[in-house]
């Protein structure tokens, strides 16, 4: 029975909880696990790996050599990022807001930014390195990546001094304000009542009234009152 696999893996899959909830096995018999490799694929050379291995982990694994300050990053940001994200990383139109929102996570309308929400500074470096600037990905040099990351952390008051040099050696000393704000999936504990709940079939309610209607704030495309009707 498959759940045993998950039980054994509990330390890695912290959130997976009680194995008994995994009642179902694979959807059909899988082909026999090949004991011996098939001998397919070609060895990846160190050069090939170096060209593609761009990820950076919270413990610093993957950080390339390089350095940069927020002051240097601001120049790059204004030129390559501010058209969407705003001069101060405040976001333009519907493009992502990257700074601000501190202390808003419990608010009615939370503002989830790098400074208010992100768990690790490495996420900034990893994401900018692989996906930004939007439409011109993987175009920034390592020094530029450190500088832009320093600028974004400075806009979020994580790095106070705009002349602070962020580099491969000191990167993991950066601590994000919301670093303790996350925990692994606990639905199988905190939402346990959704399992084996009683499903009433007859005379379950006496009165039913409508409490909310989409028509009141109808934002459906092509509907009578939607912003865009073609």
């Amino acid at each position: 029975m498959r759940p045993l696999l998950f039980t054994a893996a509990a330390s890695a899959l912290v959130a997976m909880g009680a194995a008994s909830l995994y009642g179902a096995g694979p959807s059909a018999a899988a082909p026999a696990q090949p004991e011996k490799p098939l001998g397919l694929g070609t060895p990846a050379t160190p050069e090939e790996i170096a060209g593609w291995d761009i990820d950076v982990r919270p413990d610093g694994m993957g950080l390339p050599p390089g350095k940069g300050t927020a002051t240097q990053g601001e120049v790059i940001f204004l030129e390559q990022c501010a058209a969407c994200h705003g001069d101060f990383a405040e976001g333009r139109d519907r493009w992502p807001v990257l700074a601000g929102g501190h202390g808003s996570l419990k608010a009615d309308r939370p503002e989830k930014t790098i400074g208010s929400y992100w768990e690790s500074a490495s996420t900034v470096f990893d994401y900018v390195r692989r996906a930004m600037p939007f439409g011109n990905a993987q175009s920034l040099s390592n020094d530029e990546l450190y500088a832009v990351t320093a600028f974004l952390l400075n806009m979020n008051d994580v790095i106070k001094d705009p002349e602070f040099e962020l580099n491969q050696g000191n990167f993991t000393s950066i601590r994000m304000p919301n670093a303790d704000g996350f925990y692994d999936d606990d639905r199988e504990t905190t939402e346990r009542k959704f399992w084996n709940a009683e499903a009433c079939m007859k005379n379950c309610k006496t009165e039913v009234v409508v409490t909310g209607q989409a028509a009141i704030l109808d934002v459906t495309p092509d509907s009578k009152s939607a912003p865009s009707v073609d």
């Binding site: 912290v14 959130a15 996570l105 419990k106 939370p110 989830k112 790098i114 929400y117 992100w118 768990e119 690790s120 996420t123 994401y127 704000g181 996350f182 925990y183 692994d184 999936d185 606990d186 639905r187």
Partner: peptide
Amino acid sequence: TSKYTDLLADGRARRF
């Protein structure tokens, strides 16, 4: 982390 985490009412978020 930034996306695909579930922010709950107490200001903390579930991940994974």
